[in-house]
């Protein structure tokens, strides 16, 4: 039922909606277009050229930074999902029911407070700041997103599968591996994708918790913007954009599949 169409100005609502889409996509479109700019000056169009992408391809620094970002993202996803699954499965009812709201606190505080707290903790205990501290920070972020998802999905599961498995003689570990994880698979994949994207795009925690040699992609882009950019930044941004989009596409298709399955 089209509810907006009976309003006095039926074209107003679609126009406003279109306006918002334009607002959202014009900057990104301009960014991508100018990544193919032949000129070195970022704002003057001189012709089509893919040379900045080849520049990107041949730059060892950028590969190093990309490697860092991917390592941190995958580690954070792995750690947060493992810990969440173990918590939800092995935790006693009381522990899970009453304590799982403690994980919401990290979502409710501004990220800069998290970052500053982590930096403070690391310097206080002389923990060397580098890739590991970055992984710790991103896992913390990831936990905040993953635990509600896995918890909600676990509640929805039919407990009879678990009980049947235990009755038939499987140990809890086997139940976890062969019964629960397959049942949870869509939720696991969805949370993995969320944590991957969040970790790849995260800036504030990376800003505070990265050492000299460990920069992530957003940090690198920030430094390049700060010190005067060339279209290499555009090319890099476009690549990052594509990476995130692919992951989100996967996530949405999973989500839609899950909705179809439920129907």
């Amino acid at each position: 039922m089209k509810y907006g169409s009976r309003a006095p100005l039926p074209w107003l609502l679609p126009l406003l909606a279109l306006g918002v889409y334009v607002f959202l996509y014009v900057p990104i479109a301009v960014l991508v277009i100018f990544s193919c700019n032949k000129s070195e000056l970022p704002f003057v169009w001189e012709g089509f050229s893919l040379k900045w992408y080849t520049h990107l391809w041949h730059s060892p620094e950028i590969w190093h930074v990309l490697c860092n970002s991917l390592i941190v993202a995958f580690s954070a996803a792995f750690l947060s999902i493992t810990m969440a699954v173990l918590y939800v499965f092995y935790g006693t009812r009381r522990m899970v029911q009453q304590l799982y709201i403690t994980f919401y606190a990290s979502l409710a505080t501004p990220e800069i407070v998290l970052a500053v707290g982590l930096l403070n903790l690391f310097t206080l205990f002389s923990i060397p700041i580098g890739l590991l501290t970055l992984i710790i920070g991103h896992t913390l972020l990831g936990l905040g997103y993953v635990i509600p998802i896995i918890h909600a999905r676990y509640q929805e599961l039919d407990k009879q599968y678990m009980e049947a498995s235990l009755d038939l003689g499987a140990s809890p570990g086997q139940t976890l591996r062969y019964v629960m994880i397959p049942l949870l698979k869509p939720a696991l994949l969805a949370s993995a994708l969320i944590v991957l994207v969040i970790s790849l795009d995260d800036f504030i925690i990376s800003f505070f918790c990265s050492g000299g040699a460990t920069q992530t992609l957003p940090m690198y882009i920030f430094v390049m913007i700060r010190s005067g950019a060339s279209p290499v930044v555009n090319a890099l941004s476009t690549v990052l954009l594509l990476l995130s989009s692919v992951l989100v596409l996967l996530f949405s298709s999973l989500h839609i599949k899950k909705m179809d399955l439920l129907r």
Binding site: P128, G211, R226
Partner: peptide, 23 residues
């Protein structure tokens, strides 16, 4: 291995934090 610092303040904070370890 070349490590870059954006400005001298970043240098000082990183050197202080790691007490020169790693450089």
């Amino acid at each position: 291995h070349i490590a870059y610092f954006e400005n001298p303040i970043a240098l000082l904070s990183k050197m202080n934090a790691s007490q020169g370890r790693g450089y």
